[in-house]
């Protein structure tokens, strides 16, 4: 994915109650090394009609955050230690599994990374959509099947009426992801969570699927939480971005702001490591050295300091906290006021 012009646009009116409000979310996982903290104090809100991008490398906690919202953390492995998740005014943490089942697929729906394995190979795609419609709408088989055909058509599956009777293996990768999207919107959810929806797809298909998601969010006035490691994806469809690193939110910004002027060295690293079409200034692609820490061996001080080109001695000791810089921006950098970021490691 190449870098494209960041979308301009601002979040909806912030005075209205947000659709999704996550506050101080702590998620722990049971690893070989004992219980380890995976998501540390995540706080964010998502308004109706907007798209929030959640960006970071693998292992940054972005997918776990979304699974926690969906109540889909693998039992016996993951748990929400504390914090609150409010969806449309309903507190989700502590809800019974039965109540969560009523909400999942109805008020919120999710699209996964691998359309090839996320659809059940043993049932037709129409059946897999219709059963969800019947579950939440309580309609009969006939109406549910009609609804399945309708949404398949809406996401651009040609000959939806006959294709509904096909099995997942009879579709291409891009079409399978469209089927997943059709399924997710079949009950008109207010929140759509898309976890790396384009990562497994061909580059040419990626843009189509993103455009489709963007259109659906606008047409149905949904809110979308878009999880990706690819800032190019965020640029195309998101209004606001959260950058996560090692389980923490390290920067929050409007997408346009983030592209113009990152306020955290990790965001800068992500930006400069994106491939550009523009004139090649250096021979090789920049990258962030090293890899994210394991959850059970988080570094002291700022969690990014071992990989940060700007790290000073105090970054090793002082804990970095998320500091609000303006109404739309926050950064978790101890040197946020001293650094002039945006060029990649050249102070």
């Amino acid at each position: 994915m190449t870098m494209s012009e960041p979308r301009t646009g601002s979040p909806a009116d912030t005075s209205a109650p947000p659709l999704l409000e996550v506050d101080g979310l702590m998620v722990d996982f049971n690893t070989d090394q004992g219980w380890a903290n995976i998501v540390d104090n995540a706080t964010f809100r998502l308004d109706r009609g907007t798209t929030l991008g959640l960006v970071g490398e693998s292992g940054s906690g972005k997918s776990v955050t979304s699974l926690a919202v969906m109540g889909l953390l693998p039992k016996s492995v993951g748990r929400v230690r504390s914090g609150s998740i409010r969806l449309d005014g309903t507190e989700l943490t502590g809800l019974s599994e039965r109540r969560m089942e009523d909400i999942r697929g109805d008020t919120m729906a999710m699209i996964f990374q691998e359309p090839a394995t996320s659809l059940n190979p043993a049932f037709t795609v129409g059946d897999q959509i219709a059963e969800m419609v019947r579950r939440h709408r309580g309609v009969n088989r006939r109406l549910a099947w009609d609804r399945a055909i309708e949404v398949l058509g809406e996401v651009g599956i040609p000959n939806a009426r006959s294709r509904a009777k096909a099995y997942p293996h009879e579709f291409s990768g891009g079409m399978r992801q469209r089927v997943m999207i059709a399924m997710a919107i079949s009950c008109e959810p207010r929140l759509l969570i898309a976890d790396e929806p384009t990562t497994a797809l061909d580059v040419t298909i990626q843009a189509q699927v993103l455009a489709l998601l963007d259109r659906l969010v606008r047409d149905h006035d949904m809110a979308m939480l878009l999880i990706t490691h690819d800032l190019g994806v965020i640029a195309q469809v998101s209004d606001e971005a959260l950058v996560m690193y090692a389980g923490q939110i390290v920067e929050r910004a409007l997408v346009s702001e983030l592209y113009q002027l990152p306020r955290h060295p990790y965001s800068e690293g992500l930006l400069v490591s994106m491939p550009q079409i523009a004139p090649r200034t250096s021979a090789r692609l920049a990258s962030i050295p090293g890899s994210p820490p394991m959850p059970w061996q988080q570094p002291s001080g700022c969690r990014f300091h071992p990989r940060c080109p700007y790290a000073l001695e105090r970054c090793r000791h002082d804990e970095a906290i998320l500091v609000q810089l303006s109404e739309t921006r926050s950064s978790r950098c101890l040197r946020v006021d001293e650094l002039d970021l945006g060029r990649g490691g050249n102070e």
Partner: peptide
């Protein structure tokens, strides 16, 4: 399998996930 997670994400009841999506596979 991912499709079991999908079935749960759809809000299907636990027994439906087990007796339909799991058992057939």
């Amino acid at each position: 399998q991912d499709y079991i997670r999908t079935a749960r994400a759809k809000g299907l009841r636990g027994r439906k996930v087990v007796f339909k999506h799991l058992l057939k596979n």
